[in-house]
């Protein structure tokens, strides 16, 4: 085993969308307070894999999953586990910024209130916006619509909103794909700060980004029969990017493939 005490772990996960296989026999570990990056060509199942970790796939009809997703010692797909509780513990930031069409304040406060937060809401909103490096820009306009923010600000607001429910893991699906290089760098800085408190799993198409921010990297690719995605190489980012052991990984990260 590469990682001694993983916070999250996928064990031999196979997933079908109806009759079509999307993931085959995927095994992956995420170390606590580390950033794990999922890379791979388009359509190989990275988003699908990420959604397994907080049971967002449950919302898609006809999804079947076998194998185990472990969070600490719990199997997340055990019948006794409530997916609603899972999603609070394991938050998600989506590829496209999707703030609620409400005020900035309400965007951050809603998730917390919903989950029964009993502390001081103003303090929580401020703290989360500070952690998401957005406070200085919006502190005077908390009552303004979140939709009036720029794309990069919206994405940071979505991160703040996720932090507000005090998750332990944050899943990010290409969080910077809609952002310019400056906003991207800000979010990367943010991720480095956030990993002090949270465990992060991120999907990215940007090799430099994976190399810059992540501690571990998993390379996904379609199986040889091109039916489903699987992980072909997993390791410390440093090692994977300098001496990849799989030929396909090397081709992919050097841009000769996909």
């Amino acid at each position: 085993m590469l990682i001694e005490n993983p916070l999250m772990e996928a064990r031999q996960v196979t997933l079908y969308y109806g009759a079509s296989e999307a993931l085959r026999d995927v095994t992956l570990q995420a170390a606590p307070h580390q950033i794990t990056a999922l890379i791979g060509p388009s359509g190989c199942g990275k988003s699908t894999m990420l959604r397994c970790f907080n049971r967002m796939n449950d919302l898609i009809p006809h999804v079947r999953l076998s194998g185990q997703i472990l969070y600490r010692t719990h199997d997340l797909y055990h019948p006794d586990i409530d997916p609603v509780e899972v999603r609070r513990k394991i938050g998600m930031v989506f590829q496209k910024p999707n703030p609620f069409p409400k005020s900035i304040y309400e965007n951050v406060a809603w998730g917390a209130r919903l989950n029964g937060y009993r502390g001081n809401m103003d303090e929580l909103v401020e703290r989360c916006l500070r952690q998401a490096a957005l406070w200085d820009e919006v502190q005077d306009q908390l009552r303004k619509s979140a939709l009036a923010l720029s794309g990069g600000q919206q994405q940071r607001l979505c991160i703040a909103r996720t932090i507000a429910t005090e998750p332990e893991v944050i899943l990010m699906d290409e969080p910077c794909s809609a952002l310019d290089p400056i906003a991207t760098l800000r979010i990367e800085d943010l991720m480095r700060e956030l990993k002090e408190r949270y465990t992060i799993i991120i999907v990215t198409h940007n090799m430099q980004q994976a190399a810059r921010v992540s501690d571990y990297t998993a390379m996904m690719m379609l199986t040889d029969d091109r039916a489903a995605g699987t992980i072909i190489e997993f390791g410390e980012t440093q090692r994977l990017f300098t001496t990849p052991s799989d030929r396909r990984t090397e081709d992919y990260i050097t841009g000769r493939f996909g």
């Binding site: 609070r88 938050g91 998730g111 989950n115």
Partner: peptide, 15 residues
């Protein structure tokens, strides 16, 4: 209503 709003809501642990 955009699906992204629903996903955001479920993602926060809403029923």
């Amino acid at each position: 209503v955009p699906q992204s709003i629903r996903l955001a809501s479920y993602g926060l642990g809403a029923t």
